[in-house]
Design a protein around this nucleic acid. Structure first.
Lengths: 252, 252
DNA sequence: CTCCGGTTACTGGTCCGACCAGTGGACTAG
DNA sequence: CTAGTCCACTGGTCGGACCAGTAACCGGAG
């Protein structure tokens, strides 16, 4: 048996894929910028020298990926969208729906990301950012008296701020996406819980403890508190068979 | 100002979107199962009572989302694909490409994920899995004598095993994706380094230390070692201005 | 009988031309 | 200068056509 040059399986490349590729490359290289407009479909037909069907299939794929948006009648043509995690979230929700992702995996992931973000943030935070954190606590307290949605939004603001302070946008994005997925799975259970208000208050106090730890610069303790907080808050919704992976995250 | 019923912005629903929806619902409800085949495009035209263009646009979206695959000439029609995280990975790669992630963000993310995975794994691992880990170490040692690519692949196997032992496929996917992006950015620098072999040997020893820590069940120490290892391995490629965020991860 | 090769019905990929309901800018009447 | 109309153009959908490819079917060679 001779080992010749490495041949790899080849599958047909469809015309619309080439178009998608070109657009995405232009976007990655900065030639195309969110807010800009693509030429109209009929103009693209001319530029790519393909039929409108082909152009449209490419646009559908791009649209499904959250890259562009077409609106009928808009003389400006399809719009290049700013990147959003909606596409990422969509895929994650899909995976979660078919049980490819369990709740414990999602929550465990959040515990990890949030804990790490807090650990980094407690070292990098400026005094001003510490003040901002205190403000979000006040906002959370006020939101408790409104409803669960308001509290959830204030909580989101807190975690977004943490992620921002950690200077890592990857953490920020992942956290946001996973948080959305988790909430879509169990938010109704939480908001309908009879002790919903008590849960919110407890969560608030835990957040305050985290901020205290951040203030003293004890990143490790802060992270530990954060993970414990999340475990207390969400852990009850995880089946017993999956509890083990989460507990491994709250102990040192 | 009166606050009437909550109206939400409404955008036109396109026919192909309804088709995508129907197929995805059938898939979520179990009416459609991976491996099954969709009717041919012309048959779908009849069933959905739309034109072939519309059916095709729906199929393109489904295909782009990793739900189905069409092959020209296949009399069985489009195939329902098994769920995979490839679609999720695709979106993450897109995120990494578009969002101009810095190297320190990517590496920091990896340090977090890998460290957490190891911490969880050190608690959940079975004796058999510990043996598997030892085997990957042997494979890494052997790969050093081949070339950098072989070592990189053995290293990948190690981290994939860790992620698997951590029982969290989200960690697995994220790690894989980010690792790929990082490598694509700096792998040539590493492989062309004059002391490439020394780097590989050092990395191997660090991995062995991690496995030792896992064996004793000291998850915290294992995670710390892993982060330190990654910092030593990749940290040199991060500009000084971004070093701070990484150092916050290797200290306790 | 089995096995092989060609025929053929059907597949998806692409193209073309057409129609429609909308949009938004230009243009006009006030 | 404003308010209303108009119209060129947009994207969404349709139907029909052609092509290269696939795989099952079928018939003849062994």
């Amino acid at each position: 048996m001779t080992t010749g040059p490495k041949f790899s399986p080849v599958q047909p490349v469809r015309a619309y894929e080439r178009i998608v590729e070109q657009v995405e490359d232009a976007l990655a290289s900065g030639d195309l910028v969110p807010g800009q407009r693509l030429p109209s479909e009929r103009e693209l037909v001319a530029q790519f020298a393909v039929s409108r069907s082909t152009v449209r299939e490419a646009l559908r794929v791009l649209e499904s990926n959250g890259v562009v948006r077409s609106r009928p009648g808009d003389p400006n043509g399809p719009e290049i969208l700013p990147f959003s995690q909606s596409a990422l979230r969509k895929q994650m929700v899909r995976l979660a729906r078919v049980d490819e992702l369990t709740l414990s995996e999602l929550i465990g992931f959040r515990m990890i990301m949030d804990g790490a973000a807090i650990q980094v943030a407690s070292r990098l935070r400026t005094p001003e950012e510490l003040d901002e954190l205190e403000e979000t606590l006040v906002a959370m307290r006020a939101a408790i008296d409104v409803d669960f949605d308001a509290f959830s939004q204030a909580d989101l603001a807190f975690h977004e701020l943490i992620a921002r302070i950690s200077r890592n946008s990857l953490i920020q994005t992942c956290n946001e996406v996973v948080r959305g997925v988790v909430l879509s799975l169990i938010s109704d259970k939480i908001s309908h819980a009879p002790n919903s208000r008590a849960l919110m208050l407890e969560s608030l106090h835990h957040h305050a403890d985290v901020v205290d730890a951040i203030r003293t610069g004890n990143g490790h303790a802060a992270a530990r508190l954060a993970r414990q907080n999340m475990y207390d808050y969400y852990g009850g919704y995880v089946p017993d068979s999956e509890q083990e992976t989460l507990r491994a995250l709250v102990e040192d």
